[in-house]
């Protein structure tokens, strides 16, 4: 029998399961990425703040999360999550059952990791904004919020975009680690299929190809975005 039948859709093959797993991987990655970026921005702001306490806390956060294996972060949230919720429930006087589920632990882990890396990217991008442009905004009497929303944020995002593409790659790959919690995403589906069909070579090769496809597509998407946002740098259509 042709071993590729194992990848067919329908009851005979693993096609549907793999598609579901791949979709789950993308959902976790997308939620983790979005959450991580949203959380990364205030952390970057804290890193650049003049307040010593804010700077210290955010610095420690970034150093710790980036200095510890991602797998350990996932274990901590998955296995430790229940214990943590228990503390909170006890503190609130709630004695019913509490549990950390694999999905929320996985997404939270990816958010926390993504936040640390994107905070560093944002910090560098804020620092890359030419000082003169901020000075000019000040000279024209812009308020701090106008300065931030109209000048700093759009410029920062432009500088950050290439590195943010790298953070997305990292997030996508880290999502595979969530499989250790038993959550049925792509990697977990592959593990189960490889084990039950005794065809690990085929299935792990499939996993590699699917991840490569994700990488290729997201590379293209980010390239397009970069071209769009850097038009002002290159000189653009107004010439």
């Amino acid at each position: 029998m042709n071993p590729l039948h194992l990848l067919a859709f329908g009851p005979t093959g693993w096609g549907d399961e793999l598609a579901y797993g791949a979709a789950m991987t993308l959902v976790i990655a997308a939620l983790g990425f979005a959450g991580g970026l949203v959380l990364g921005l205030p952390i970057a702001a804290a890193r650049l703040s003049s307040n010593v306490v804010l700077r210290a806390i955010s610095g420690v956060y970034v150093t710790v999360v980036r200095g510890v294996p991602e797998l350990l972060v996932i274990y901590l949230l998955f296995f430790g999550g229940g214990q943590f919720y228990r503390y909170v429930a006890d503190a609130l006087g709630y004695s019913g059952a509490v549990a950390a589920d694999a999905f929320s632990a996985g997404v939270l882990a990816v958010i926390l990791i993504c936040a640390a890396y994107s905070a560093e990217v944002f910090r560098g991008a804020f620092q890359a904004i030419p000082k003169g442009q901020i000075e000019a905004a000040n000279a024209f009497g812009m308020t701090r919020s106008t300065l931030f929303c109209r000048i700093k944020l759009p410029q920062m995002l432009r500088y950050a975009l290439p590195s943010i593409a790298n953070v997305w790659q990292l997030v996508l790959k880290d999502t595979a680690l969530v499989s250790v919690t038993g959550l049925v995403e792509l990697m977990r589906t592959i593990d189960v299929a490889a084990g039950s069909t005794r065809s690990p070579f085929l299935f792990y090769m499939t996993a590699i190809l699917i991840f490569l496809a994700f990488t290729a597509v997201s590379n293209k998407a980010f390239e397009g975005a970069e071209r769009h946002f850097s038009r002002s740098v290159i000189g653009g259509y107004g010439k």
Binding site: P130, G132, A139, M142, R158, S232, G238
Partner: peptide
């Protein structure tokens, strides 16, 4: 800010905002 809004400044290095058109 009030004072700055009633003055205009031109810089040595131009300092145009690079993410915006002319």
């Amino acid at each position: 800010e009030g004072l700055r809004r009633r003055t205009g400044m031109v810089f040595q290095q131009f300092n145009l905002w690079s993410h915006w058109t002319v």
